[in-house]
Design a binder for these strands. Structure first.
Lengths: 199, 199
DNA sequence: TCGCTAATTGACCGGTCGACCAGTTAGCGA
DNA sequence: TCGCTAACTGGTCGACCGGTCAATTAGCGA
């Protein structure tokens, strides 16, 4: 809206990245044109090339930024450890679910990136899941969770249940009998935590 | 490979649909060109337009075919009812998981279609989930499953856990501690069925 | 056997794509 | 204050996009 009074390459880059983020989230890489990008950024097409080289370069920059934010946020969550307890896992699920609820665009971006063959998020997720699985393992060894389940599978199960929920949220919004985000989360937690109780 | 000796519009349509299915599954709608489609079908670009009108027309035909097959298969599964029992649900999960394992392309196609705003599968899924939820409700009323969970949420939970598993399978294949398809399924079933046991 | 219909072809269209480049201008350090 | 660097612009390029069309040809019913 308001034009910058002076040249500000940092702001320009940020504007382009923000507009690109929104467009790529909405339509994916292939369906977005440099002209759209320029128009939504309020800059010329040439300027985007100046700052990011190619369309792929901009796409990579958008993904890198989004991935980095996601990674930092999740790692922080995981490292501020409490003593192992069932509630620790329960709260972890809740926080993950709420994060996705607050950032549905991130789910879409990840889905596009993954479909298009991007593997950079794979290593990132591997580390995060590893950290989560380690917490589950500790709780298992402390006798707080049943120990006949692969900890990685436990983490993956709740990640899948949460991620797919938001990946298809417009989709299932009007299905008969379907509750709100919070109601789904509550039921999932009931099921999940009961399923993890030790014998 | 082997050219048809005579003209066969049915076969031609089938060839085009098959090639289009593979390409759209792989790259999504926007990234596929009519020239690729023609080359992979072994026909000319004009012939595709003759049979399907536009690129969107072909895309719709591919989706319709895939959705119809999926819908028929799943509905058959759901309607060949047995007496309600926990094993009925367990076997339902197993069959759904195995179906996705045998048809990973379908998961990708649905994901592309959904990201691109297609809502035709939404109504279809609504009906299937409704049927599944009805079965869960019957089992709850028979006292075979805990009755403090929304049946739709129960069905959605396992669908999400299965779908997302295959949507990200190349992704998590090399994560530390991650087991095979069957090992994940076994652990998920342990967790899921225990979580559903009545008090 | 003979037309009629539809399957099939290749050439071609206007438009848009991503990218480039020469030229201009603003800001900043010397 | 002055020049150098980089931010920024408008115009343009060849390639390729989806789509069209007239011409050809195979098959099938009369």
């Amino acid at each position: 809206m308001n034009e910058p009074a002076t040249r500000d390459p940092e702001l320009t880059r940020a504007r382009i990245l923000q507009a690109a983020f929104e467009l790529f989230v909405e339509k994916g890489f292939a369906a977005v044109t440099m002209r759209e990008l320029a128009e939504n950024s309020g800059v010329t097409k040439s300027l985007i090339h100046h700052h990011f080289g190619t369309k792929e370069g901009l796409w990579d920059a958008v993904k890198e930024l989004a991935f980095a934010r996601y990674y930092e946020g999740q790692k922080e969550e995981l490292e501020q450890a409490g003593t192992p307890s069932p509630d620790l896992l329960r709260n972890g699920v809740i926080r993950y679910f709420r994060f996705l609820a607050d950032n549905p665009q991130v789910v879409r971006l990840f889905t596009w990136a993954h479909l298009e063959g991007d593997s950079s998020c794979s290593h990132m997720d591997a580390e995060l899941v590893g950290l989560g699985a380690e917490r589950v393992r500790e709780a298992q060894q402390a006798g707080l969770l049943r120990d006949d389940l692969n900890p990685t599978h436990v983490v993956t199960t709740f990640i899948n249940a949460c991620t797919q929920w938001f990946a298809t949220c417009e989709h299932h919004a009007d299905w008969p009998g379907m509750g709100s985000d919070e109601e789904y989360l509550a039921d999932f937690l009931k099921l999940f935590m009961r399923g993890l109780q030790p014998d």
